[in-house]
Amino acid sequence: MAPQNNSLLELSCVSKYFGGLAALSEVSLYIKRGEIYGLIGPNGAGKTTLFNIVTGLYRLDEGEFNFDGIAYAHCKPHVLAEAGIARTFQNIRLFANMSALENIMVGRHVRTHTGIWGALTRNVAARAEERAITQRARELLRFVGIDGPHQTLAKHLSYGEQRRLEIARALATDPKMLALDEPAAGMNATETESLKTLLQTIRNSGITVLLIEHDVKLILGLCDRIAVLDYGKKIAEGTPDEVRRNQTVIAAYLGGEAA
């Protein structure tokens, strides 16, 4: 599987150890521009580790990690956010005591520039930028379907709204790739369905999506390609149909858990 020209993210032979234990060993994969790429595997398979490497929370021990043609093996999360990788968290991490709108406005930080001087003088540029930030934040709130008063503190939003607010906050950073860590966790069927529509809309707007999910039905119905991890190794990759038929996957994953 040679990386292709239109790939946005490439991992080659990435390994990560925790005290001698390989959480990931020699995983290689690539994600094409504009696709929804799914990552599945049993608990402890290394999904979140891989996810944290891609978003800069962990440093990889071996291998290479390229994003949009540039190597980012040992970068901090904010550098990767600037490079265009935005993420959400498995257990929601919103800025609880800030309003829904402000949460998204924070997301604009990385694409805006007003410093102390602009903040103090409120010059023309600063005001214009602030207006643009507010404007964009409102659009994004509407986009993810949070219609209530914008001033509601994030902690007072419903669970589903909080999940969607996290996505909106990530989108505010103008990402090239949106990385979602189990976005459907804890959602009911209706909420999951609307999440699915939302992700498709996001993809159609040209943003690549990396998705970790336990909900196999969601991932098979949504993703263009899927990688399956088990014990830190990639055991299969391909379209949903290919993965569904893959014997190794059935044995190691579907068989093991569905039994």
Binding site: L57, A81, A86, F95, M98, V106
Partner: peptide
């Protein structure tokens, strides 16, 4: 509010 999330937001 959340340093990790703040850094992840750039």
């Amino acid at each position: 509010e959340d340093e990790v999330a703040a850094e992840a937001m750039g």
